[in-house]
């Protein structure tokens, strides 16, 4: 299997609470370690990734966290300003226009404009070049919103191309769509837990990304996987210890669910599934991310 390093935009999504940010942080860190200039983007949220990596929050401006690794929390107001400045070119003109109450009012109700500028900022960085002609960022990791929101977020260019009258917005949307649907550029990584709902959502997300947005699922990550520990014989032997039997049975059940979930993902996504075992660490910081990264080695680097 080819590694993610062949792609430039890595979209990470899944059900709420499955560990998307954890996986995004680990992938970004691995990309940076591989010598790629990497930008990890969170979208208008309470920033997690910089904290996981034990750096101060990045905020709405692209900020260098460590060697080869930059982060940004893309927020609507700042992104709108940057986009406005790009279109209007002059700060003074921007102020007159965008700080006008009427205009602010209108902008709020223009469909999907907010999503468009958020995604627009990310796509802008994807195409940004250094003076010597190289990409400013080799890899962009997008910690995308959860399933439903991710689908509407990533469909925005497609929807705008279809519905909005010809004009600057539709031209921007067209450019973004072309990059998103290019399998040489963009790949999705879907995150799930070994539980029924997160797995089902990963399958829904896969279908929606494929049919509506035309983004290909590169792989799935099964987070908090529980490895097999207790055999049937162990469980039988514990019958006389009800409390311990309950604990062992729960562990055994979760291990079985892990196997089931992995199979279900593999069969339906036609993509490899990478298990990240559940971690038992007192605090969740850089150590945890480094461990997760270790389990995603083949996903990023490919198997040779």
């Amino acid at each position: 299997m080819a590694g993610l390093l062949d792609k430039r935009l890595w979209v990470v999504s899944g059900k709420g609470g499955v560990g998307k940010s954890t996986v995004a942080a680990a992938l970004a860190l691995r990309s940076a370690r591989a010598g790629r200039r990497t930008l990890v983007c969170e979208v208008n949220t309470q920033e997690r990734i910089s904290r996981f990596l034990e750096h101060p929050a990045a905020g709405p401006e692209v900020k260098l966290l460590e060697e080869n690794l930059w982060a940004v929390d893309v927020r609507p107001q700042e992104a709108m300003r940057e986009y406005g400045l790009m279109v209007l070119r002059f700060e003074a003109l921007y102020k007159t226009v965008f700080e006008n109450r009427l205009v602010r009012y209108f902008l709020r109700f223009i469909p999907s404009l907010q999503e468009l500028v958020l995604l627009g900022k990310i796509m802008y960085h994807l195409q940004e070049k250094l003076p010597d002609g190289r990409w400013r960022f080799d890899t962009i990791v997008l910690d995308a919103p959860a399933t439903g929101h991710a689908i509407s977020f990533l469909s925005v260019p497609q929807v705008l191309v279809q519905t909005v009258p010809q004009g600057p917005m539709s031209r921007e949307a067209q450019k973004m769509r072309d990059l998103l649907v290019d399998p040489a550029v963009t790949a999705a990584v879907l995150v799930a837990l070994p539980e029924e709902m997160p797995v089902n959502e990963a399958l829904e997300l896969h279908a929606a990304l494929k049919d509506k947005v035309h983004i290909r699922t590169h792989a799935a990550v099964l987070n908090q996987a529980i490895p097999e520990r207790f055999t049937e014989a162990d469980l039988e032997a514990l019958a006389g210890h009800p409390e311990l039997h309950r604990v062992a049975q729960a562990n055994h059940d979760r291990a079985s669910l892990t196997v089931l979930a992995g199979t279900k993902l593999e069969r339906n996504l036609h993509a490899p599934v990478f298990n990240v075992p559940r971690l038992y660490l007192p605090t969740f910081g850089r150590d945890a991310i480094e461990q997760v990264m270790g389990h995603l080695e083949a996903l990023v680097m490919g198997d040779k």
Binding site: L88, T96, V97, V103, I110, P165, Q166, G167, M169
Partner: peptide, 21 residues
């Protein structure tokens, strides 16, 4: 009525969009 402010805004969204809205 709104002169250049809205003209500039329409540069951003297209005039048809504003009219439809």
């Amino acid at each position: 009525r709104s002169g250049y402010v809205l003209r500039a805004l329409s540069k951003f969204t297209g005039t048809e969009m504003l009219q439809e809205l």
